[in-house]
Amino acid sequence: MTAYIIRRLMQSAAVVLAMSIIVFLGLHVVGDPIYLLIDPQADQAEIERTIRRLGLDQPIYIQYFNFIGNALTGNLGTSFVHGTSALKLIVDRMPATLEIAIAATLMSIFIGIPLGLYAGLKPDGFISKSIMATSILGFSLPTFWVGIMMIMVFAVMLGWLPSTGRGPTATFLGITSSLFTIDGLRHIAMPALNLALLKISLVIRLTRAGTREAIHQDYIKFARAKGISTSRIVGVHLLKNIMIPVVTVLGLEFGNLVAFSVVTETIFAWPGMGKLLIDSIQSLDRPVIVAYLIIIVLLFVIINLVVDILYSILDPRVRIGEKSA
C-alpha cells in the first residue's frame, strides 16, 4: 500500500511538471500582459520598469526556472494584478468552491442513487420512465440556461431563494462554511442544484444500468432464496456491487466541479475559484493561472488516489499494491 502510494505520487509529480511547462509556454504565446496591466498614460521608461519588476525581460526558460525554483519553496508567484501571492488568492477562494462542489456531489448521491435504483428495479413503470426522460433533460440542457431559469423562477417570480452571492458562514468542528447557517443554505441551494443537475442525471443512468445488470445475477436470486428481505437485498447485496462505477464517476466529476464550476459561479456571482480563473484569464494574470492549474492537477491526483482506495474497500477483489489475489 505504501509503495503503491509513493509510486503514484512520483507519477503525479511528473504530470505536474509536464503540465507546468505546457501552461507556461502556452500563456507566453497567448499574449503580453503588460499592456493590460499598465496605465495607458505611462511612458516608455515606466513600462520598462514594470517589465523588469515582473521579470518579463528575462528569456522564457529563465522565467520558467525562476518559477520552478520558487514553486519548490511553496511560492507559486505573485499576481500581476493583485500584487499578492497567487497561492493565497486561490486558497482564499477555495472554501467557497469546495463547499458548492461538495453540496452538488451530495445532491447527486442522495438524489441520483435512489432514483436510479428505483428506475432499475421497476424499469417499466410510469415513474421510472419519467425519471429516465427527465435525466435526458439533465444531460442536454445547458447549465447556464438552467441557471438563469432557476433564478427567474425561484428568485424573481417566487422570491423563495436569493439569486446571488454566498451566505454568512459559521464555524463547526474547525471548518468554516456557509453550509452551517440557514441563510447560507438558502444561498447555496440554487447554485449547487444547478451544478449538480448533470451529475444527478449521470448517477441515475449509471445506477440504473448497474441495477438492471446485477438484478439478474445468481447471487441476488440466491439471496432471495435465503429469505433475505428486499430492503437488505437492495441496500446491501445490490448496492455494494453497483457502487464501483458510480464512485469512479463521482470522483472524477468532483474534480471537474471544483476546477470548472466557472459558468455556475459566474451566473450566481459565487465568490469561488472559477470566478477568479475567468478574471485572471481576462487580465492575463499568468502567475494566478499557472498556480490555479497546478493546484487543479494536484486535486485530480488526490481524487484519483482516494477513488482507488475506495475501490479496495468496496470490492475485495481489488487489492491495492499486492500482486497475489
Binding site: 445468481d218 447471487y219 440466491f222 439471496a223 446491501v236 470490492d315 475485495p316
Partner: peptide, 10 residues
C-alpha cells in the same frame, strides 16, 4: 454455478 451464487463483495 458456485462461482455466481455467493455475493462477490460480501
Amino acid at each position: 454455478d458456485p462461482m455466481m451464487t455467493l455475493n462477490p463483495v460480501l
